[in-house]
Simulated scan of single mutants.
Amino acid sequence: MTRSDSPLQALEEASRALRGLLGVVIQVERRFGREQSPLALLRQITEDPEWAWLRPLYQLIADVDHAVHDGDLPVTEVAAIGSHATALLSGVGAPIEQAFLERYRDLLQTAPEVAMAHSTALQAIRKLPPESDNEAERLHARHQWAMRCKHRREGQQR
Rank of each mutant, 00 (worst) to 15 (best):
H140Q: 14
Q156W: 01
A115C: 05
G82R: 02
V24T: 15
N134F: 09
G33C: 11
H140E: 14
R148C: 10
E131M: 12
L21P: 00
V64Q: 10
E47F: 14
A52C: 06
A67W: 00
L57G: 03
P56W: 02
W53L: 13
T76S: 15
G71H: 15
I61T: 12
Q98T: 12
E50A: 15
H69E: 15
A146I: 01
S119C: 10
W53K: 07
V64S: 12
Y104F: 08
A146G: 08
P112A: 07
Q157D: 06
P129Q: 06
D65V: 00
L73M: 15
R43H: 10
E47C: 13
E35Y: 04
A40E: 12
A121Q: 01
G23H: 05
H84E: 14
P7T: 02
H118A: 05
I26G: 03
E77N: 11
I26M: 09
E13V: 12
V114K: 13
A94F: 10
G155E: 05
R31V: 07
A121V: 00
R16D: 13
R153V: 06
D65K: 05
W145Y: 07
G23L: 01
R16P: 01
P130C: 09
P7R: 07
L101R: 04
A67P: 05
H118G: 03
G82F: 05
Q59I: 05
E131L: 10
T110K: 05
S37T: 14
P56L: 09
M147L: 08
V28G: 01
A80T: 01
A67E: 08
R158K: 10
H69C: 11
A14G: 08
D72M: 12
T76A: 15
P130W: 06
V25R: 06
A14H: 06
G20A: 08
Q98L: 12
E47S: 13
Q156R: 02
E77D: 12
E137Y: 11
R103P: 08
E113Y: 07
L11W: 07
Q109K: 05
P49E: 06
I26T: 10
H143I: 05
T2Q: 15
Q27Y: 13
D65I: 00
A52P: 01
S132Y: 04
G155W: 06
R3P: 02
L89Q: 03
L8S: 07
